[in-house]
Design a protein around this nucleic acid. Structure first.
Lengths: 339, 339
DNA sequence: ATGAAAGCGCTAACAT
DNA sequence: ATGTTAGCGCTTTCAT
């Protein structure tokens, strides 16, 4: 037979089609769709049938335009660069799933330009109901923008008086790492971390500050020649570590993140240094891979903070509680085999 | 002064406001917005000013409702479970950024229910212009749905006659891994992989199939008692490996992914087995962490396939080329220290 | 080149 | 309980 004739360009069924088919008004269909109680059983049934027959599904955009709610939250993060982000994202996603029916738009930021784009084009009520900013410290202009937009915002990994945020005490974390190295008898301790970019990363420097404090407290003057900074990333950290180990090397290195610690480990391997005998290494984060790597590290609850931040955001979106909360997640030392 | 009076609920400026302010019609404003050539310099200038003064930014939803295009692509992936997904996502994001101005919605799938949700609620033209499906093999019903919806789809990591897809030859990969182990003199080779869930993961079984083939070719009959399957994940793999190593253990283990290989490594460590002397381990993927881990593995270009898939999707969206393409990414053996 | 007006698919207020 | 209608903010004919 020849009824393979292409069906009309597949105009997807609208609420009006359903109404006609069910022999009711669009209002009734809408009410059914939204679970309003003021609909007769009869109508509800007919609408249900029509929907099934037509394969109707309501348009999210139309609904958004009409209600002003997008049922979507945006996540802005320097995704590529940090190994910790995807772990956090898991928490966010889990939380979103549990506490409401929100979709997720991901906005990756790798350059300053992208960063501005994110806050300008992405951060508006029109597109998302709320914004989760990970590891990026908003500039004053961005803060101002966010406020005018009246967009609920929660920060993770950075603090700000204006917005609720969940973070850790990075300075204390740096102290913990350094104290551990000190306990192990190290006196010459190197540091590998992120360069303080215009970009908004701040935790690396905070951690280094903690290191300096712990050092001074132990009567050791921090030695800038033992510090290396560069772009975030395993390979970059490896190269930095190489220059650090080149001559007059430290006996231990504190890496500002586990990703960077991995680079340090690679450098040590390249130089045939025995870890921890020739060189002790401690990282920060406790990524999933840190365990099989045997990496000693300062643990922060990545996943949990992601979850918590999402909860705070959802709370801010659904109203009520919009006071700037500050939550500090606990840190702990995980000793494995690299120290 | 007391003009801190709350400004009216911040009705964000609309195209109509701009039109009024510029003293032109909305049509003209729209034309300016869309870079139409048929606008006088004068009008263009006035509109530009009005936009600046009002801080106007056009509504993406309204535009979507009107044009039917969302400028968004959806990614469906079993995010939590596989370490390779985030690596792939990087490629996708990079590609999206380079080849067009698309946003990204992420849909994580962890259960069968979520999986259905994804394809039902998420996979429609209304929300995204195209869909990238990672590591999930669509069911017949889902395929049918996707087709009626006329939604451009590209598959990564799984094949399908209906859709363009970029994947690898998993069977061949399993052979490569096994041949390497065989070369090293191993005869009793164990396997740790994913259980063939109703869920749609298929690569693990394909890789095991390749292993069996290589074994038979070498005159060895595959021994099912040396195979373990379970949920994807490092810890699960560790436990599986433990049962495998419990009694009459193999001398080498092929893990269907690097994540699982890490679990195997942990099991070996827990049992104080020396790797590779007592137990050789080979993985699959070559994640970023595999290098510092010293893990021998079969490398597949994760990031590149993500990029390529996004390119194919964009091509499919912008028209023309919608023939089902099949692209096979190259595999390579990376020998490190675990074999 | 430009303004007016008709949708896009939905919700919500209003009338019945 | 239900139908009708006026938006939501934009694009896109269609006149002019």
């Amino acid at each position: 037979v020849d009824r393979a004739r292409r069906q009309p360009p597949h105009k997807t069924a609208t609420i009006r089609d359903v109404a006609v088919r069910a022999g009711v008004g669009v209002g009734t269909v809408s009410r059914v769709l939204n679970g309003s109680p003021k609909v007769s059983e009869e109508a509800r049934r007919r609408v249900g049938e029509a929907i099934a027959e037509l394969g109707y599904r309501r348009s999210a955009v139309a609904r958004t335009l009409s209600t002003g709610r997008t049922q979507t939250i945006g996540v802005v993060a320097p995704f590529i660069t940090t190994g910790s982000v995807s772990e956090r994202l898991r928490g966010v996603i889990a939380s979103l799933r549990d506490h409401g029916d929100y979709d997720l738009m991901l906005f990756d930021v790798e350059t300053s330009a992208q960063r501005s784009d994110a806050f300008r084009d992405f951060a508006c009520r029109d597109r998302v109901d709320g914004l989760l900013v990970i590891s990026l410290s908003p500039s004053d202009a961005e803060v101002e923008h966010l406020r005018r937009e009246r967009l609920p915002v929660v920060l993770v990994d950075v603090g700000h008086p204006e917005f609720p945020h969940v973070m850790i005490d990075d300075v204390r974390g740096g102290e913990i790492a350094t104290e551990h190295l000190l306990d192990r008898g190290h006196r010459r301790i190197g540091f590998v971390g992120d360069s303080p970019s215009l970009f908004g990363f701040v935790s690396s420097e905070q951690r280094r500050l903690g290191m300096s404090r712990a050092l001074r407290r132990a009567g050791i003057e921090p030695d800038p020649s033992l510090e290396r900074r560069g772009e975030h990333g395993r390979e970059q950290a490896r190269d930095l570590a190489l220059t650090l180990l080149d001559s007059d090397p430290p006996t231990a290195i504190f890496a500002a993140s586990d990703i960077q610690a991995m680079g340090v480990l690679e450098a040590a391997a390249a130089l045939s240094l025995d870890v921890p005998r020739d060189l002790a290494v401690i990282g920060f984060d406790d990524l999933e891979v840190s365990s099989p790597l045997g990496l000693t590290t300062v643990r922060q609850p990545l996943r949990e903070t992601g979850e918590r931040a999402a909860e705070l955001l959802l709370a801010a979106i659904t109203g009520a509680d919009r006071r700037p909360v500050e939550e500090l997640a606990p840190l702990s030392l995980i000793v494995r085999h690299t120290t």
